[in-house]
Design a protein around this nucleic acid. Sequence first.
RNA 1: GCCCCCGUAGCUCAACGGACAGAGCGCCUGCCUUCUAAGCAGGAUGUCUGAGUUCGAUUCUCAGCGGGGGUACCA
Length: 601
Amino acid sequence: MFTQEQQIIEAKIKEFCAAHDIPLAELKWQPIPFSGEWGFATSFFQTAANEARAGKGGKPVPQRAQEMAEQVKAQIGSVDGISRINAVKGYLNLYFSTSTYASRVVDEVLASGFNFGRGTKKNERVMVEYAQPNTHHSFHIGHARNTILGEVLARLVEFAGYETIRASYPGDLGLGVITVMWIYDKLYKGQEPDGVHERGQWLAKLYVEATAMLEKQENETSEQSAQREAYDAERREMYRKWDVGDEYVRNLWRETREWSLEELREVLKMLNVKMDVWFYESEVDEPSKVIVDELIAKDIATDERPQGGAVIVKIDEKLGLTKEKYRTNVILRKDGTTLYLTKDLALARIKFEQYHVDRSIYVVDSRQALHLQQAFAILKLWGFPQSEKCYHLGYGVVNLPEGAMSARRGRVVLFKDVADEAVKRVLAVESEKSGDIPVNEREKIAYQIGMGALVYSMLSMDNNKDIIFDINEALSFDGRTGPYIQNAYVRANSILKKSGTFNVQPSTFDYELTKHEIELIELISRFPQTVEQAANEYRPLVMAAYAYDLANTFHSFYHAVNVMQTEDEKIRNARLQLVMAARQTIENALRLLDIQAPEVM
RNA sequence: GCCCCCGUAGCUCAACGGACAGAGCGCCUGCCUUCUAAGCAGGAUGUCUGAGUUCGAUUCUCAGCGGGGGUACCA
């Protein structure tokens, strides 16, 4: 927000250095890192080091840097909007004239409103792929981490100015799917429960049971072995029939698959996610077979089927790498069936050719890092320039205290259960803490707060960290949590409700601002660059951390400065506008984090 | 074997190569007749080890120790 002033100062520094033959290093600006101080700063260490390297000077670098800072300070003199300049410890600190900048920040926020912080429109189309659960299972807390990360990334990228397409890619085929269909058809046909979530979860239970029936047991009798093998033969037969398009099996598949997809759509609605595109694994299976031939024809893939092998891509060799990096990968099994990689290649082509995406972000478990690197490398060999702009946003797994989650064994924590528990816990707190919420609103607000806690707990940690899921931590409402930020919004809202109408003409902050006001305005002014940083670095955490800092600063301000009891009407008016700006910024930050901002709590 | 990620306070996590390494939880002390106490103010502890690069390293490089993951016909 202050590039103009920065440029003026930069020009003066450059002028000074040129005149004194000083080898100026690139100027890097940062906010003054002291609380209650508002302005920007740069240092001269690098420049002093450059000079020393060139054989000039002879003074210790820190000392010389300080000398330069002092000289530059003298050179700059006074600048509009800068109240004072300090040279300290090799740093040049430029302090803002608070009243000038306060108005500028607050007025901009109030003028932009919902759009405050939005980046300029970029001429680039980005697709974010996330929410890739398997059908015939149920949506667990690990899927929730994926979906929340993906959605927030999409919101950030979109708000930063990119045209953004959200894509989901459910896995709707494979042995796991067939296994559920097999047991359903054999033992449970027509017994499915009614509710959307209940039915989805029921399928996951069938999977556990089927797995147990089909898994080799310890010390099993010959009868048991024979039984198990007979079951497995049935399952294999069903898979075969699915493959050849047998009508009965396909219908069974469509019906059960739809139950899972209904549940998934319901969950996405709960998370406020609106997908633009749905890709299904089953839809890229056939196209991916075609690709194999194309890759063989282009001499990217090697066909070892005549020797009884598979179709492979020797990625390192084709890229001319001498050191092992991407290794070699199978893209078609010797039985002619495709793999995950094959389908990913087909999907990438659809993204590039049909959706014309310039950049493709994959939000996928970090265990698949090598896998995706291989896919990107093959896309490069294949000649897609977009392969350079494929990015894997990996994230750590969500484990349980007792170990990894396992759909096979039914050892999972379901998202829906956590969401229900969240509402229950908030309702319990609500009845003691917030008496003024209308009864018919309570459940809705409890949901907003409960989900705020859950979502924030997933975002407040860098994505490469594994999580051991602890429901008490995930649904904590105190301290560095979603509800803490929501509460700041609610409090701002509360002040504004009490104030009634007031003058929202251009603000005037021509009084001595308190430390709390300055800090709050400074933080608000950083929002746009935080959006940019979080989007550029693909890091929801950056926005999550900012939102907490902003809320924290607001809470402190709230306690230290009583807005409604401010006697001077002009000052009160300015403060009310500041509160409006803070509320707007918190609201925008929460929105990017996929957390709702309740009016009361 | 090779590759990737991680190692920071009692616990869970932050920190564009820069000015005193920050939060939350837990523990202790205050603050609700003033805009909502899901809050505020205050209090104690810390960079795995060893070299190197640099004016300056939690951050970059190398080695070691410890943990997790991946390593062509699973997804």
